[in-house]
Measured scan of single mutants.
Amino acid sequence: IDAAQIVDEALEQGITLFVVNNRLQYETSRDSIPTELLNKWKQHKQELIDFLNQLD
C-alpha cells in the first residue's frame, strides 16, 4: 500500500488529507473516522506527509 492509495481511500470516504507545518491534518463532514483508516494514517504518517508535500 502506498501514500497515494491511502489518500484516495480517504477521499472516497469524504475525507481530505493535507499537511500543515509538516503535520498530517484532515477535513471531513463525517462524524468519525474509521479506525482502520486512522491506523493506516499512523502507520504511514511520514510517507503521507512526504507525498502530500510533493503535491503542493
Rank of each mutant, 00 (worst) to 15 (best):
A3S: 05
L37D: 02
N22A: 07
Q13R: 09
Q5W: 11
F51T: 02
Q5F: 12
K42N: 13
D8P: 01
L48Q: 00
Q54N: 12
A3N: 02
E12P: 01
E27L: 14
P34L: 03
G14L: 04
K40A: 05
E27S: 15
D8S: 15
T16W: 12
L38W: 07
A10L: 04
V19R: 01
K45Q: 15
F18K: 13
S29C: 12
L52D: 00
W41G: 00
Q13E: 08
Q13W: 15
L37P: 00
H44A: 07
L24M: 03
Q13C: 09
K45A: 15
D8A: 15
A3D: 01
I15C: 04
Q5S: 13
L11D: 05
H44N: 07
N22K: 05
A4I: 05
Q54K: 13
V19T: 06
L24E: 00
S29M: 10
A4T: 04
E47M: 13
G14A: 04
T35N: 11
Q54E: 10
Q25I: 12
V19Y: 04
Q25F: 15
Q13D: 03
I6Y: 05
F51H: 07
S32D: 09
W41N: 00
V7L: 07
D31L: 10
L24C: 04
E47Y: 07
I15P: 00
L48R: 00
L38N: 03
Q46K: 11
I15Y: 08
Y26I: 06
N22F: 06
R30Y: 06
Y26R: 01
S29D: 12
K40N: 04
V20P: 01
E47I: 14
E36T: 09
L52P: 00
Q54P: 06
Q54Y: 10
Y26N: 01
Q43D: 08
P34H: 03
I6K: 01
E47V: 13
V7N: 03
D50G: 06
E9P: 00
I6L: 12
V7I: 14
E9D: 06
I15A: 03
V7W: 07
D56H: 14
L38Q: 06
A4F: 06
L48G: 00
G14Y: 04
E27T: 15
V20W: 12
R23P: 01
Q43M: 12
Q25A: 12
D31I: 09
K42V: 10
K45H: 13
K45Y: 15
P34C: 03
T28I: 03
Y26M: 06
A4H: 12
Q5V: 08
I33C: 03
Q13V: 07
Y26G: 01
G14K: 04
L55C: 08
K45V: 13
Q5K: 12
N39G: 07
W41D: 00
I1T: 10
A4R: 14
T35Y: 11
Q54L: 12
I15H: 04
E9M: 05
W41K: 00
D8E: 14
L48T: 01
L17F: 05
T35E: 13
I1Y: 11
F18N: 05
D31R: 07
F51D: 00
Y26T: 03
I49Y: 03
L52G: 00
L24I: 07
E9T: 03
D8L: 15
T35H: 10
D50M: 11
N39Q: 12
A10W: 02
N21L: 06
Q54F: 10
V7A: 03
F51P: 00
N22S: 06
